[in-house]
Structures are given as structure tokens and as C-alpha cells.
Nucleic acid binder design. Structure first.
Length: 508
RNA sequence: GCCCCCAUCGUCUAGAGGACUAGGACACAGGCCUUUCAAGCCUGCGACAGGGGUUCGAAUCCCCUUGGGGGCACCA
């Protein structure tokens, strides 16, 4: 345990919606905060004005809450270390950037974009190492005065020092990591418009907000020494760094991009949390799934609660290797969680999805009895909430079904005539049934199949197809009950007629 | 190109020198159950990237090679 209370943060940039990889980073931070009884802070890093996406912050807060990772400080909830939006903290960064200049750890650079671009071109042409040539680092006081007098715009750059040294820091997942200073850039800390870059803003905020552990994506590893040097320059106590392994495309090729990901079968899969939400994944499944990428509860337990994860979470146990996104496993897990829900709860969650899938108004759907009755029938058959609607359309169709291929109505090892007879008999039997419940329907149909000398599956095939429009459907006896006697008899008659017509036409 | 990180079944992982005949899970294949499809249960398939060391002993430690990933902006 640490001597000071643990404070971790998730600091997304509102340049896009919540990416599934970011969500994993947020989750690990949250798990660690809860594990150690510390605070989880949400901070918005909106220093790139050009790429701002208007409703991104809303997407972040909704996504995090959907997952169940509530932050202790940040947007919507406040806190003692605010504001939690970097655009509202500009003076802070300017003050600290100035401080660095005054203390010789940073310097103003007056290089124009044109000069920088020309320098890059030359470096590429000569196959030299790329990077800023530190032109303005060695300006004389007179030269600086001249630039200032001329009103030339400037940025503030970090002065890497010593230039021939190296920086070593400890990563809680990977151990000691050393970077030679010859590889480091005199990175821009404050842009010419007075806004900070990530390097400055993150360090200033992490320090001012009392962040003790920085768990962030592996992509930041290369710029970590900049952060270390900055903490040193400021004379601040450095936090613990832990760089989380990146998540790769499911096919293992390249990291999952902001825009799309490639599945194992080469097809695209969603990358944004909101798309997973819309596809009908459960938050409890998503949390469980994400926690299992780069970390595991005990190596053998696949399904576990947030409480279990919190209790067992350990930064040092995180696997440093990049991981392909195991999409198939998410689907499987989601199915597990769906089956764990009780029927009323599943019904509640299904409502908006089925309404959307069927093109019905949610209130209208809720007023009907079919969906609630069908929940137990589809529970074991869906892996996402969105998959329910297509299986249930036959229950909400009030008119006759269309049978694209009448041949599909014909039962196994049966002909059209036999099928017609079977459908007729079924209709007659069901019409006369005294009670309309599952047992009565099942008993009568089983008896009928015996009487007709058919296997149950043989009889049920045409009945199923006639009633549902498909060879595949939820369990038939229950479906018949939900469908009701009127629609059942109407469909049986319609199917029989279609088969007759088809038989006639094929004989002509 | 340069720097950094990583390396166990197809995939997610367990394994922190002897308990490894390398465990679990997804996927896949077969079987059972069965009114279709599922679900469930059972069985099977399947890995320590390669090469050198260190050690009585290496998946575990070191080195090299190879492979994969990430980063090299007035973006984060």
C-alpha cells in the first residue's frame, strides 16, 4: 500500500467518441482506485481546439456511467481540484511554462512553420534523425529581444538536458525503462496561441490534482521521459507510471484504430463504446470482458463481478504484451450475462431494442403481451439484445405471412399432399382444443404426429414454417400459445392454401 | 530510418527455476440431450518463435536472431 491516498485519472481528449481501448484504460484506473480506496478522477483534455467534437464529453460521461465506472471528481460531479476541463485552466499552464523559462528549463522558440517544414524536408532528404534542431535554444539575449520587439509569435519548448544524458524511470508493469536524451525532442509545451500541449498540461494537472498513479495507454511510453524530465524540472514528486498494453485488431494486425477495426474474419467490428451499447451489449458483460484483456482474475475464472475484480486488481499483474481484441469472447460473455438476467429484467432491457428493431413505438410495444411472454423463449438464443427483434417479428405480424419458398413448408421425407393433410389436421385439432396452453398444445400435437405416423419433428416442421415463416424459430408450443388461436389457425390455413396452389401449378 | 516495448494453443490468458504429461476460456470438430435453432453437458484438436548460454534442473534468468506492436507534430 502507498503512504498517500491513491488518486488516478482518466483523461480523454474530446476529439472523438469513447473508443473501446480508452474504455479499457478508464476501467483499469477505476478498478485500481476502488481497489485501493482512492479517488478516480475524470479530466477533459480539450487543448486541441481544432479537433473538438461537440458532444464528446457527453459521450464520455454517459459511457462511463453506463459501464458503472463512476468518477469521484470531474465533470458533472465537481471536486476540490477543479476545474476538470483543461480549457478552463489556461492561466495555470501559462504561469508554469513561464516558470520553466525563468528557471532555464524551457525557452521561447520563434521558428516559423515554414522554417520547421524546410528543416523537416532537409532531414528526410538527408536521412537524418528527425526533430527540432534547437535553433532557438542558443539565441542571444539580443536576438530574443529583437524577436520580441518585432512581435514575432513564439512557442515555449522544453530544454532537454543534459543533451548527452539519459533518463530512466520505473514503469509499474515493465520495470526500468531508459531513453537516451539524444532521442528526445525539445518538445513544445506552450503553443503560440497560448494553449498548452499535452506534455505540459498533463504534468501540471496531474501534479496539481494530486495524481499518484498514471495508468495510461502504451502509446504514451515513448513520451514518458518528457514527463519525467518535466517533473524533475518543476521539482515535483513524480507519480507511479504504468503503461497499459495496447489493444490490437482482432486479427492481430495493428492497433484498433479510431475509425474501424478488422475482425478475425476480415469484417469490420465496432470500435466506439456507443456502438457496442447500441448493438445490445450489457454493461456488466463489457466490464467483465474488458477486465480480461491484459489482466485476469485468477487465470481460470472467466465470469466475475466488478467486486471480485476490484478485490483482486493489481497493477503489477498486468500483462505487458499487446492483445488482439477477442471479439468472439465478448459475444459469448454477453450471452452468459443475458442468461443470468431474470426474465423481468431482461424484458426491461429488451424493450427499447425490440421496439427499434420492429419499428414500433416503445410504449406501444410495452402495451402488448407478446414480448414479455417470449422472453423465456429467446433468452438462450440471443447473444446481444439487438438479436431479439428478428426472432420475434412473427409474433407482431397481424396479417398473413408470406412464404417465399412454399417448398420449405414441406416436412422432412414428406410430400406436398402429406403436408397439406398434416396442416389441416393440426388446424382442426387446435381449433377444437379446450384449453390454450403449452401442455394442451404439446400433448395434442404429439398425439397427432403419432396418429399420422409422423415423427414429431416431421409434423412440426411444416407447422413451424407456417406459423413463423421460418424453419428456425423459438420453441413452437410456447410460440403457438403466445401467437393465439386466431392467428395460429389463420396461418395454418394460409400455408395450406399456398401449398395447394403451388402443388397445382407445379402439376400444370 | 531511429528509439522504445513485447513474445505460451488461431485468439484472450495461467505460469514469477523443480508441483508442466504446460492449466482455464473463446473459437473449431465430434457426441449426448432435443420440436427447429440455441442453451447445457461430455470428448477432442491445439502453444512455450528460433539459436546460444547460466544452472544439477528453464516456459520461467541472460544474450543474439526473428517476428509483432508503439512512438518519432504548435494531436492527444
Amino acid at each position: 500500500m502507498t503512504d498517500t491516498p491513491v488518486r488516478v485519472r482518466f483523461a480523454p481528449s474530446p476529439t472523438g467518441y469513447l473508443h473501446i481501448g480508452s474504455v479499457r484504460s478508464a476501467l483499469f484506473n477505476w478498478l485500481y482506485a476502488r481497489h485501493s480506496g482512492g479517488q478516480f478522477i475524470l479530466r477533459i483534455e480539450d487543448t486541441d481546439q481544432k479537433r473538438l467534437v461537440e458532444d464528446a464529453v457527453d459521450d464520455f460521461t454517459r459511457g462511463l456511467r453506463w459501464l458503472g465506472c463512476q468518477w469521484d471528481e470531474g465533470p458533472l460531479v465537481g471536486g476540490d481540484y477543479g476545474p476538470y476541463q483543461q480549457s478552463e485552466r489556461l492561466p495555470l499552464y501559462q504561469v508554469w511554462a513561464e516558470w520553466l523559462v525563468e528557471h532555464g528549463h524551457a525557452y521561447r522558440c520563434y521558428c516559423t512553420e515554414e522554417r520547421l517544414e524546410a528543416m523537416r524536408q532537409t532531414q528526410v532528404a538527408n536521412k537524418e534523425q528527425s526533430g527540432y534542431d534547437r535553433h532557438c535554444r542558443i539565441l542571444t539575449p539580443e536576438q530574443r529581444a529583437a524577436h520580441e520587439a518585432a512581435g514575432d509569435p513564439s512557442v515555449i519548448r522544453l530544454a532537454i538536458e543534459p543533451l548527452d544524458g539519459s533518463t530512466t524511470f520505473h514503469d509499474a508493469i515493465r520495470g526500468e525503462i531508459t531513453f537516451d536524451h539524444s532521442q528526445l525532442q525539445d518538445a513544445v509545451l506552450l503553443k503560440s496561441d497560448g494553449w498548452p500541449t499535452y506534455h505540459l498540461a498533463a504534468v501540471v494537472d496531474d501534479h496539481l490534482m494530486g495524481i499518484t498513479h498514471i495508468l495510461r495507454s502504451d502509446e504514451w511510453l515513448s513520451s514518458a521521459p518528457l514527463g519525467v524530465l518535466l517533473y524533475q524540472a518543476f521539482g515535483w514528486k513524480a507519480p507511479v507510471w504504468a503503461h497499459l498494453p495496447v489493444i490490437l485488431n482482432p486479427n492481430g494486425k495493428g492497433k484498433m484504430s479510431k475509425r474501424f477495426a478488422v475482425g478475425a474474419d476480415g469484417k469490420a467490428i465496432p470500435v466506439l463504446l456507443k456502438d457496442y451499447i447500441a448493438a445490445g451489449y450489457l454493461p456488466e458483460a463489457m466490464l467483465n470482458f474488458l477486465a480480461n484483456i491484459g489482466w485476469s482474475l485468477d487465470g481460470s475464472t472467466e465470469v466475475f463481478t466488478p467486486e471480485q475484480a476490484i478485490a483482486a486488481f493489481d497493477i503489477a499483474a498486468i500483462n505487458p504484451a499487446p492483445a488482439a481484441f477477442p471479439y468472439e469472447k465478448l459475444l459469448w460473455l454477453n450471452g452468459i450475462y443475458i442468461r443470468q438476467l431474470d426474465d423481468d429484467e431482461l424484458y426491461r432491457r429488451l424493450l427499447p431494442f425490440v421496439a427499434a428493431g420492429l419499428g414500433l413505438d416503445e410504449a406501444e410495444l410495452a402495451a402488448r403481451p407478446e414480448l414479455r411472454a417470449a422472453v423465456p423463449l429467446i433468452k438462450e438464443r440471443i447473444k446481444t439484445l439487438a438479436e431479439a427483434a428478428p426472432m420475434l417479428t412473427f409474433l407482431f405480424e397481424d396479417g398473413p405471412l408470406s412464404y417465399a419458398d412454399p417448398q420449405e413448408l414441406i416436412g422432412e421425407k414428406m410430400d406436398a399432399a402429406q403436408t397439406v393433410t398434416a396442416l389441416q389436421q393440426t388446424a382442426a385439432m387446435l381449433a377444437a382444443l379446450p384449453a390454450w396452453d403449452k401442455e394442451s398444445v404439446e400433448t395434442s400435437l404429439r398425439e397427432l404426429s403419432e396418429r399420422l405416423g409422423l415423427k414429431v419433428r416431421q409434423l412440426l416442421h411444416p407447422v413451424r414454417t407456417a406459423l413463423t415463416g421460418s424453419k428456425v424459430s423459438p420453441p413452437l408450443f410456447e410460440a403457438v400459445v403466445i401467437l393465439g388461436r386466431a392467428r395460429t389457425l389463420a396461418r395454418l390455413a394460409a400455408a395450406e392454401a399456398v401449398l395447394r396452389d403451388d402443388k397445382v401449378s407445379s402439376k400444370l
